[in-house]
Design a protein around this nucleic acid. Structure first.
Lengths: 153, 153
DNA sequence: CTAGAACTTCAAGTGCACTTTAAGTCAACT
DNA sequence: AGTTGACTTAAAGTGCACTTGAAGTTCTAG
């Protein structure tokens, strides 16, 4: 039993990251992670790959597509620990993304709350439900939910 | 020009809801909205359909699948304005969903923030990046990002 | 009445993120 | 050496939410 195996098989990486081997191969095909091969052709992942996979998972939770994550990962070094500067750059853009997504949901929550209270189910005045009758003859549309401010009605 | 046409063509509904006609037909095929037909077989939507479509959009923003939205819509009346009680029931479950999603993102945000500050890019200690090395020989896994609490390391 | 926009259906296609399948090879243990 | 589990590839399949295409019909303005 080697005390600290330098590289991981795809199965080990899968177990430790809780990501299916098929997903790991898919990530590799998309350039999100990289491996070396044994003489027999099997993948061996360097240990930092574990961190890369964790990064991918985190980024997905933040709401990024695999393409966006790939772009982000390409700004990080391949097989070394990222520097504080590498990370700060990425994490700041994530913060902004998270902030806007949270804000969006908070707005939705607020409108939902006020709708529960007021029972305003009218198409003309309910800020939550009234999301699109822009061209109506009375000009009632407001589209609060989609981020617009009311301009009429 | 009729002053207040009772029913909407699919094109009018599309323009006013900013949802493509193909999407509206798709919604109808999935039972999310309903129409009546002209003698010639064209769809005509009752005005409350506008509200239903707005509801669908809102629910998608909250994070529901079309199937879940269909279920929710089936608890609402088909062609009349929903009652305050109808709505309160639905909106409360939305509130809970939104709350948990917001909480999840806030947690992510907090961890991201502390990571920016500490620069802790170590696989052993970084709560944000260290999301899975559970089986490692040093027992370093914590999986903060995925919602677990650290039990070791 | 006629042109053309808007509509109809059904089937197939799209993009994302994977998973599954099939047929075969490699690695580790006994 | 043999068995078993883990691995390999390429291609096809899945689920969601639609979109696109083809071929034909209806509606409306002039």
């Amino acid at each position: 039993m080697p005390a600290l195996p330098v590289d991981l098989t795809i199965g080990e990486l899968a177990r430790r990251s809780a990501v299916a081997t098929s997903a790991l191969r898919f990530y590799e095909s998309r350039g999100l992670i990289a491996s070396e091969r044994t003489a027999g052709g099997q993948r061996r992942y360097a240990r930092p790959t574990l961190r890369r996979v964790a990064f991918i998972q985190a980024a997905q939770r933040v709401g990024l597509s695999l393409d966006e994550i790939a772009t982000a990962l390409h700004t990080l070094p391949d097989r070394r620990t990222p520097t504080k500067a590498d990370w700060a750059l990425l994490s700041r853009s994530w913060r902004a993304l998270l902030r806007s997504r949270i804000d969006e949901l908070e707005t939705l929550q607020t409108r939902l709350t006020s709708c529960i209270g007021c029972g305003c189910l009218s198409l003309k005045t309910c800020g939550l439900l009234n999301a699109g009758d822009r061209a109506a003859e009375r000009g009632s549309g407001a589209r609060y939910l989609l981020g617009d401010m009311p301009e009429d009605g």
